[in-house]
């Protein structure tokens, strides 16, 4: 009996450890695979040239990724600027000021929003956001836009990120002990002072984590952005102009134009770039969380 129990124990242990190693190896294999496929391009061009050149002429063998990287960063930042404060204040209101009933009502709504396929957000972007940008927002700022723009991409992405960030922020604020809030209030803090000095400070690592998740999600989002961003090579600061983010480049062209030498490698390099950037974003936020957690 004892022998059987010990055997079960070690089998379960091997099973769990095996599962963990498989999970850990997936990103490593993805990274290796992408690098392997992108290697032909990397052998012919320097990394600096690929990242900092804006010349994109695949037929001539020129692969400058700067416009794609710029569009990706621009749309991501725009989405972050639009969604982060909204999520932060909504989460604070729901957990600290609103009634329990409101929070209980909102939680499934947030889950539903997170579950909507990105293509639906894309269609909604074409039907609502693109006309809004071309007919209202651009004229308001005294400019002309087709609507298919970085701003439209940013707005759609922001809406897509909201459920993820909001859900995580609610979790973060709900885990802050009531005793800590009571301590602050009993020292004479008003409700807002308590939120500022206790909720936000104590929840800071979690807030950073939620924002990191939002940014990573926004940076890698493909279909919805592709549908509204215009997909035109541009390096412009105007949010009313079209852009062409990295994921859209891959989704639009993979399987096409494979007759062009190195095109396949270029697309794999774009995927590798995405992979590395998301990895860096995650590592940066982990480091930041680690630093702030010690308070």
């Amino acid at each position: 009996m004892n022998k059987k129990r010990r055997l079960t124990d070690s089998l379960v242990n091997i099973w769990m450890r095996g599962g963990l190693y498989i999970l850990l190896s997936i990103p490593v294999f993805i990274g290796i695979g992408l690098y392997w496929k992108a290697a032909p391009l990397l052998n012919e061009h320097s990394l600096t040239e690929l990242i900092f050149s804006s010349k994109w002429f695949p037929m001539r063998g020129e692969f400058g990724f700067l416009p794609f990287i710029f569009s990706s960063v621009y749309v991501t930042l725009l989405a972050f600027i639009l969604s982060a404060p909204l999520c932060l204040f909504a989460a604070i209101y729901l957990t600290q000021f609103g009634k329990m009933r409101l929070l209980n009502f909102m939680l499934p709504v947030i889950d539903i929003l997170a579950g909507i396929p990105s293509v639906v957000y894309g269609v909604w972007g074409i039907l609502v956001i693109v006309p809004l940008v071309s007919d209202k927002i651009a004229p308001f700022f005294g400019t002309i836009s087709s609507g298919y723009s970085l701003l439209a991409g940013g707005i759609v992405l922001a809406v897509m990120c909201i459920p993820y960030m909001l859900n995580m922020l609610i979790e973060v604020f709900n885990t802050i002990p009531v005793g800590m809030k009571e301590a602050s209030l009993s020292l004479g803090a008003t409700h807002w002072e308590m939120v500022k000095h206790v909720i936000i400070r104590k929840g800071f690592p979690g807030i950073i984590s939620a924002f990191g998740l939002g940014i990573a999600k926004a940076f890698g989002e493909t279909i919805a952005v592709l549908m509204v961003v215009g997909n035109t090579l541009n390096i412009t600061l105007s949010p009313f102009k079209a852009g062409y983010p990295l994921p859209a480049l891959i989704a639009n062209n993979y399987g096409e134009m494979m007759s062009i030498p190195d095109y396949d490698s270029a697309l794999m390099f774009a995927a590798l770039l995405l992979f590395v950037v998301i990895l860096i974003i995650n590592l940066f936020f982990r480091y930041f969380i680690h630093k702030t957690e010690k308070i």
Binding site: P177, G179, M180, E182, A183, S184, L185, S186, L187, G188, A189, T190, H197, V198, R201, K202, F204, I295
Partner: peptide, 21 residues
């Protein structure tokens, strides 16, 4: 004035809750 009223009463909880500072 809840803030002023609460400042007149120090609170010591079951578990200490130092502020995140």
């Amino acid at each position: 004035n809840l803030s002023a009223m609460r400042q007149r009463m120090g609170l010591l909880s079951q578990r200490p809750f130092p502020l995140p500072a």
